[in-house]
Design a protein around this nucleic acid. Structure first.
Length: 271
DNA sequence: GGCCAGGACCTTA
DNA sequence: TAAGGTCATGGC
């Protein structure tokens, strides 16, 4: 079959439902239910029985070590974050962690995150996922995964999108289409590397259509800056209800973004 | 049919 | 700098 590994603080269902990635969708093989994800021209299916720390992936050991170990941030010890999080002695955050302790902050592709979170504004998550998938189908490259023999589409680069912007109409982006085009033009002129160095938050903010929330999501999910704390409608609701005097993350600022994910995932589950 | 969505921009004061 | 209106589309 595939390669199997064990990891604590890893739950593929929680990760898929945590709202940080938009191309991780359920797949079924026989009686096994898992998720597939795509990263930089790599495709993988992940199977894990709920509650188990044993995970099976549809690739060989080399590919796992070269691609997916990094993508899933498996060399980071999340239990040490948990130890420090508990020290906050914050009832809501503790509950949120216990509910979503299998969440990790994935190391996703910067350009894909920039475009995806521009799309995300004023949309619901299922709609975001459908729109991103369609973007890949319209502009990406069709590839067949050698291991599973399944076909998928890569996330397009800026040149592929700019090659024919009229096809963006099919995506029903509304007012966001001009933001996508602006982002692609900026990336084409300075290169995506410029957006991944220095103060990546400030650099993302230079793109028209990218504000504080999207720039924070880009920095957190696209550049793995775990100290970023994106404030969206859900987090805003939590802050005003649970923390009218302000939230205190003293001692945990360096992984505030992970805490944000726990809160986001937990709040949506109880609403 | 009104309301809101993993917001941001523009105008006004 | 803060507040309010506007922007497309979709689902409930």
């Amino acid at each position: 079959m595939g390669y199997t590994f064990c990891s604590d603080n890893f739950d593929i269902r929680q990760i898929a439902d945590s709202g940080q990635c938009f191309r991780m969708i359920p797949v079924t093989t026989g009686n096994k239910h898992g998720y597939r994800t795509i990263y930089k021209g790599h495709y993988v299916e992940v199977y894990q029985e709920s509650g188990s720390n044993k995970v099976e992936v549809s690739c060989d050991e080399d590919t796992f070590n070269n691609v997916w170990r990094e993508y899933f941030d498996l060399d980071t010890d999340y239990s040490s974050y948990a130890d420090r999080l508990i020290m906050l002695n914050d009832n809501y955050i503790t509950k949120a962690y216990q509910y979503g302790k299998g969440i990790r902050i994935l190391k996703q592709d910067p350009f894909e995150m920039l475009i995806s979170y521009i799309i995300s504004q004023q949309k619901r998550i299922p709609n975001i996922m459908a729109t991103v998938e369609k973007l890949c189908k319209v502009y990406g490259t069709k590839v067949m995964d050698e291991f599973t023999k399944k076909e998928y589409y890569t996330f397009p680069n800026s040149d592929e999108i700019l090659s024919d912007v009229s096809k963006l109409d099919d995506l029903k982006l509304g007012y966001r289409d001009k933001y996508i085009i602006a982002a692609c033009e900026d990336v084409r002129s300075v290169g995506i590397e410029w957006f991944t160095k220095g103060n990546v938050y400030e650099r993302a903010m230079t793109v028209k259509g990218v504000g504080p929330k999207v720039a924070n999501c880009y920095a957190l999910f696209g550049c793995h800056q775990l100290n970023r704390f994106p404030i969206d409608t859900w987090i805003n609701k939590i802050l005003s209800r649970e923390y009218p005097g302000g939230i205190n993350l003293t001692g945990c600022e360096d992984f505030a973004g992970l805490i944000q994910q726990y809160m986001f995932y937990y709040e949506r589950s109880i609403s």
